[in-house]
Design a protein around this nucleic acid. Sequence first.
DNA 1: CCTTTTATAGTCTTGCTGACTATAAAAGGG
DNA 2: CCCTTTTATAGTCAGCAAGACTATAAAAGG
Lengths: 239, 239
Amino acid sequence: MDGYDKYAHEPFAVTVDLAVFTLRGGALHVLLVERGQEPYAGRWALPGGFVQPDESAETAARRELAEETGLSDVSGLHLEQLRTYSEPGRDPRMRVVSVAFAALLPDAPEAHGGSDAAQARWVPYGTAGPLAFDHDRILADAHDRVGAKFEYTCLATAFCPPEFTLGELQKVYETVWGTELDRPNFRRKVLATPGFVEAVPGAARLTGGRGKPAALYRAGAATALHPPLLRPTREGRPA
Amino acid sequence: MDGYDKYAHEPFAVTVDLAVFTLRGGALHVLLVERGQEPYAGRWALPGGFVQPDESAETAARRELAEETGLSDVSGLHLEQLRTYSEPGRDPRMRVVSVAFAALLPDAPEAHGGSDAAQARWVPYGTAGPLAFDHDRILADAHDRVGAKFEYTCLATAFCPPEFTLGELQKVYETVWGTELDRPNFRRKVLATPGFVEAVPGAARLTGGRGKPAALYRAGAATALHPPLLRPTREGRPA
DNA sequence: CCTTTTATAGTCTTGCTGACTATAAAAGGG
DNA sequence: CCCTTTTATAGTCAGCAAGACTATAAAAGG
């Protein structure tokens, strides 16, 4: 990083783009905004915005997350830097380098009283047509990353409310991975991992469900999973 | 990414920083440059430079990699985006957002006929004092990432010459992880993973070594490891 | 020739996993 | 009120992979 004088620094704009996931009604949803102006007017896009001079990309991402979701407190939400997209032509207007983030919400309110002009809405994952810019790619990368992190981290609890049943946690895995899991084995595995979940002292939920009431659990202190909880049907080598 | 007019885009400089690793004499080395000017004059720093207007961060990183290593062909080398560092104060002169990359070289020549003013040199990992800027953090992140990817990818062969013995491959793992591995088990595991390595048709190296000549292998077609090759002594949960 | 060194083959036990069966405790419908 | 359905939870069993370990082969060095 010597030689600052040799190259004049070009006018780069730095933005953040957010892939915000949540589970609504047993289906994976993504937060999207509808573009009102060219380019890509009328197309869906990931929420995002410019990084301000006094903030880091992480700070900007969390600020945008609060603005777009309308949530007052986003400090506890999982927010993770994905990677940076910097292809020269990715925005036709100007040179924009975008730092992409993935965020996970337990369950999301529909309202979005964002100060931003664009209204953000929850859209079932995979149903929104081609997104604006390179956001299809960013969204796919985000989904891949989240799915992969489910295997070796406790990230799945970020989709759950503070107290949840093992059936709900399993549904989270099944929804994100798009596979079905064996219930007894899932249960055994989760409970065998220390710090993944911990039982809520004295409670069992009954009212809602149709079957036997399930015990309630909270997210534990662990953050990594050892050994990992691998996806099924991953035979051979995905070259 | 609406609202381009609302915020004037601030003068961000976008750079790439490279954590380039190689193995020299059984020890992990990093490519570093010594800074000649303030700030951090006389300190070691990661090689890097500005992203040009017509190139992506990946292109800039590969260009810098060629310049700093002096290698004529860097197209086959492993180069991977790590993450982006954007803290407002990370460069005291101006607002610099840096996209960090990690690169792996089989074995590196000492010469660095870089057109760059700064001479890059191979330094044993961990021996260079505090680096300039936030490069200590970047380097540590890069090392963590490489070590983690060794568990579930075939990345380790990127440190090896085109043909290598299983003993050499094991040494790569041991050097990067800083642990010792059981030789028969390592061998069994590697050979049991289809596509990880493939035997060179008719050859066994004899001249150099002291013991029984080892069979030669090439990197296979696989890129992922199923199941993963986990580091030993990772008991409990690294909370 | 014998020791050292490295490569390679094989054994054995332990533990996790996937597949499966069984029981418990609720709701719903006749 | 019984019986079916649904969901939760417990338990079983075979197979496989990993860690620890032993054994043999083939070179170099004295």
